[in-house]
Amino acid sequence: MNLFKAELRRIARRRLSLIFGIIAAAGVLVLAGVFWFTSSKGPTAEALEEAQAEADRMNEENYEYEACIEDEAYLEGPDYEWVEDDPYYDGLSHEEACAELFGVWTAEDLIWTYTFDFAEESPLLLIGVAIVAGLVMMMLASSAIGAEWSSGGMANLLLWHPNRMRVWGTKLGAAAAVCAAAVLALMLLAFGLLYLAASVRGDVSGVDAGWWDENLPKFARAAVLSVGMTVLGASLAMLGRHTAISGGIIAGYLIVGDMLVRIAAMALQMPFSERLSLYTWVTAWVDGKTELYDWTDLYAETADVMVITASEAGLLLGGIVLGFAVLATWAFQRRDVS
């Protein structure tokens, strides 16, 4: 327990933790600020009146429209006699038909309003916050392990605690605990700020028991994904004994590796080739399930469908994280500390 507390303190006191913490909190603040400043509950009566006056002025300059409005028989002339036969114009009044033909400005055309719908838009934002927080924590965890190797701190620590399994387990536990706390804190902060922005300048209706039932599992899975990313980052840094190796492997896979896998799958004309991409499995895990469609049979009336559930995605992603953690454990137990 002493070692665990010391590890928590070591992570918390690192300069990078402070920098990442400030950046993450600032990022959430900026996100909420964007919605605060772009959202509104609708135009004011004064703005609407002003826009209507402007629309009227612009319509007055639309001479064809004006002529059409003023002459009830305008559309019966040789240029527009086809209108009578066009089913699109059936049931439209003369004014409506004129507006359709020559265009008409309304107040709404001149006022752009956006209303932040919290119930509709916040789940994606909150999941995004959790995943970005997970990426940040993954970097922080790999940096904490990598820096300990490169600074010689690991050897120092082992002189005090020679049981390597205990040291590694504690480090992993501390990194996961800090990640979980950080993700939870950021999600709560983001939820609070976004809800505030929506309640003052948007719409918070729809956040009811049903909304929670639908979204809470997604938030929880996103948070678990973040913890898994942290464990993966720490394990890779332990394997490579350097922060850059962990970052390099992850960035390399996400940028190049995933693309190569997709290209290979396409070249092989593999059905459901998207299943080779980790992004697909991450999406399935967070969303609860994802459906893949195969249209390779050009004569089929419907596409073949493959459903990946959250449980299947969890097994695969968990297996990958566990695999690297076991590999790192084995390497740490076996290798010399120089």
């Binding site: 690192r14 300069r15 820096a147 600074s151 010689g152 701190g153 050897a155 120092n156 002189l159 005090w160 605690h161 020679p162």
Partner: peptide
């Protein structure tokens, strides 16, 4: 190990 104090090779610490 609780009875052993040791420094092996050049001492390295977290710089900050």
């Amino acid at each position: 190990v609780a009875r052993i104090g040791a420094v092996v090779e050049s001492p390295q610490f977290f710089k900050h």
